[in-house]
Design a protein around this nucleic acid. Structure first.
Length: 261
DNA sequence: ATGGTCGAGTATCGA
């Protein structure tokens, strides 16, 4: 089973590239973030033509998340689970696809350590942990993936000193992320590559991509029974190249099927 | 040395 996550930075602007990439990589499940579409503008037919059933949680101009699946889509939850404080923005989508509980996230950026949105980011991550407790079971197959807007540790940024004092690297954000993972999740990229300093996002400006100045903020977490079946994982840097790329690269992980040797 | 780009939409804001 092949699962991918990609912040596409506008699905309207990126649809052609996304279609081409899906045809090349053939994931079974794909999580998209920053579609920047209303639900009625989501190109479900384009994905159906490629064999994907899709569900989208959007608001229009900003945010927006989707799950595409060749293995069915069931038990969909838009945003936080009932009983939790609801989100005014479309940043979270949960569905069951081929027996895997799939949770995709677009965590608030935070803007700055002294900005109100920074506190919102911290409380949002705390609510995500509560959401997992309500909507998933860590002893089942669960994937929690997307743009977390947090680099888990200093290996995940090009220059820790240059990033110090900004969002994405602050101790409180990293702790909030660790508490989400503490529900029972493994960062499968870091499990496979313990030393590598590879990134998933690069600012469009200043040729940062070509200078290897990025961050690893797009993460794919798996519950124990899924994580132990990890076969391979990669960040598809090629998808960040060429004309009109997203500022994020996709992350792809392959898991052995249950019962496979 | 400074600032450097996209995408939303059409002036700026958000990232």
């Amino acid at each position: 089973m092949r699962i991918a996550t990609w912040n596409v930075n506008s699905l309207k602007a990126r649809l052609g590239r996304v279609e081409q990439w899906l045809a090349e990589v053939t994931p079974d499940i794909v999580c998209l973030q920053e579609t920047k579409l209303a639900d009625d503008a989501f190109p479900a037919m384009a994905f159906a033509a490629l064999g994907y059933e899709a569900v989208h949680h959007g608001e229009g101009r900003w945010n927006g998340v989707a799950i595409l699946s060749r293995l069915g889509v069931d038990d969909v939850v838009d945003g936080f689970a009932p009983g939790l404080e609801s989100d005014t923005e479309a940043r979270l989508l949960t569905a069951t696809c081929g027996g895997v509980r799939v949770v995709t996230v677009y965590v608030p950026n935070g803007r700055g350590l002294d900005h109100p949105m920074y506190q919102h980011k911290l409380s949002w991550l705390a609510r995500l942990r509560q959401h997992l407790e309500v909507t998933a079971r860590a002893d089942h197959d669960v994937v929690v993936c997307g743009d977390f807007n947090v680099a888990p540790d200093d290996r995940d940024v090009w220059d820790a000193a240059a990033c110090h004092g900004g969002t994405h690297v602050s101790p409180a954000e990293r702790q909030a992320l660790a508490e989400v993972a503490g529900w029972g999740l493994t960062d499968v990229f870091r499990k496979r590559y313990q030393e590598d300093q590879l990134f998933s996002w690069w600012d469009y400006r200043a040729g940062n991509f070509h200078k290897h100045m990025g961050m690893r903020i797009d993460l794919l977490y798996a519950s124990p029974p899924l994580a132990e079946r990890l076969s391979w994982v990669l960040i598809d840097r090629n998808a960040r190249k060429g004309k009109l790329p997203s500022d994020h690269a996709p992350l792809v992980a392959e898991f052995d099927d249950r019962g496979a040797p």
